[in-house]
Design a protein around this nucleic acid. Structure first.
Lengths: 301, 301
DNA sequence: CCGATTGTTCTGAAACACGGAATGATCTCT
DNA sequence: AGAGATCATTCCGTGTTTCAGAACAATCGG
């Protein structure tokens, strides 16, 4: 027997003064009702209700327990109803994670628009370029560029990016435009290396197999912005993710080369732990972001 | 699933960080453990624990619920342990009922001795000559003189009394001593009448049948002490319960007559509602009183 | 004195919860 | 890097628990 249900039943008996009537309130037969009270009394080792077939009164122990039980049940209902209410409403906190550049450029404005629509939601945006563990860091949703490795996570695809090689127009004027990956041997490069971007550059052509080129770089950095800045200054070629230079390509300050040799695009995904019982605020943001991101971030390809 | 047990299990998981380990603490299989948490989450409509097979962390809702659950369970345990502890220990209140004269003369000293042995027990002694309802008045034990009629009550016999007819020595000297019930017609009587003592006097002799005599009384009172006082003053015969005049008979201030015609003795009993799950303090008093009363109250017969 | 109502006990039946096996995922040890 | 171990989860057959209804005992009102 449920320990709280039996207290509820006990209180119903105390209030109504009748076993059968109290039992009916809980859709219980009289036999069930009397058994439950008897069992509770046996467990406590004391009588709670002094009763004949016609009369009923509380013992001292019963009166004391009834008072405490009322408070207890109210507390329990508050706790449970609170949890349900909170879960069902668009309120609470959301913790996001995204790569720094993508996050500050695309996610931050998105978040701002979302928060304006939902005044009771707060949001933490953790911009990290390392691979964060969603469970450890208690992150609700992360934007990931790359294929999904963690099979316990769910994902929703919001776009794709390519690794592209770019250079400044004046650099290309001075050193010529590479036509094939092999040409890279005669070029300077600023390599951008981090956890997600290996040092070797991979290429592939429709009329040829995949190939990897070890680029001779005179400078290696671990921040994309820095590599891009140096490249704009004419220091050489660099390889970045397409979204990182969307503005520069549109403005003409950087030029995309070796386009025919680019490997398959990399998916951009919103990942989150398990789809079961997602809090509405999380689902709401997920739906919102999945609808907005393709428009604001990937209309450049 | 028990609503409190599931909270306990939930907290054990939170504390240990593992489903299986928490389940072991409650002698549950991992399958049972995961099912219970899933069901709780389904009921709340939100996820409480974000988990993979190796890692585990609380969601916001989970953290909040855990905090409330800890408090709630502590309160519940306090309430239950309190009830058990109170029931198991010799503490609390006892409510007694007894006839006024017997109560003030015999029960009160008995109570005093009992309370000296048990400092944590308090006791209310309700002296009433009417037939009180044990359930209505929430009385734990009543001393009753007479046969038990209420079948829902239990009783322990502690002695017996007789209805006896007495008079003062000087009255008998003046009016003669009655030898047979029929003689009463020539006597004066002070009749003591109340709920338990009918107006007619019953007699019975071993060599004759039972008979009832309507006594001509010049005075009728509803307090035994008053009738006894008047009888001692020589006003006539009266019929009382034997214990009520034990002292007077011993001192010789009253004389018992018609002894061979007395009807069967009336049992004196401690009655109490139901024997099931009697609180230890009640049982303790019952045992004490059942042992003492025969010695202190009935060594006069 | 009789019928109605109530708490209690008993018994067969149904719902429930349980544990073990199988699965997929992840960590650790060698 | 591979293999074993650990962990949460799902499915399914089974056993226990719990239930409702009937019979019963007690009490009260008419």
């Amino acid at each position: 027997m449920d320990r709280l249900e039996e207290l509820r039943l006990f209180l119903a008996i105390v209030d109504s003064g009748k076993f059968a009537a109290a039992g009916r309130k809980f859709a219980r037969s009289p036999s069930s009702t009397t058994r439950i009270v008897a069992e509770l009394e046996r467990r406590l080792g004391t009588r709670l209700l002094q009763r004949t077939t016609r009369k009923l009164s509380l013992t001292d122990s019963g009166a004391r327990l009834a008072a405490q039980a009322r408070r207890l049940l109210a507390d329990y209902d508050d706790a449970i109803d609170g949890a349900i209410g909170e879960a069902a409403s668009l309120r609470g906190n959301i913790k996001l994670s995204a790569p720094t550049l993508f996050g500050s450029r695309h996610i931050a404005p998105l978040v701002r628009a979302f928060l304006e629509r939902h005044p009771d939601i707060t949001l933490q945006l953790a911009l990290e370029d390392r691979l964060v563990d969603l469970i450890d860091e208690r992150i609700d949703i992360a934007l990931r560029i790359g294929h999904l490795t963690d099979s316990s996570l769910r994902a929703r695809r919001v776009g794709e990016v390519r690794r592209i090689v770019v250079a400044s127009p004046d650099y290309l004027k001075r050193h010529g435009r590479p036509r094939r990956p092999d040409d890279l041997a005669r070029h300077h490069a600023v390599t951008f290396v981090n956890q997600a971007s290996p040092a070797a550059w991979s290429f592939q052509h429709k009329h040829g197999g995949p190939q990897k080129v070890k680029v001779s770089s005179r400078m290696e950095v671990n921040r994309a912005e820095t590599a891009i800045g140096l490249t704009r200054g004419g220091m050489g070629l660099t390889r970045v993710l397409s979204y990182q230079v969307a503005g520069e390509l549109a403005a003409g300050s950087l030029v995309r080369v070796l386009r025919d040799y680019e490997v398959a695009p990399i998916p951009v995904q919103l990942v989150y732990p398990s789809a079961r019982l997602m809090a509405p605020r999380i689902r709401s943001f997920l739906d919102f972001a999945a609808g907005e991101i393709p428009q604001i971030a990937f209309n450049h390809l």
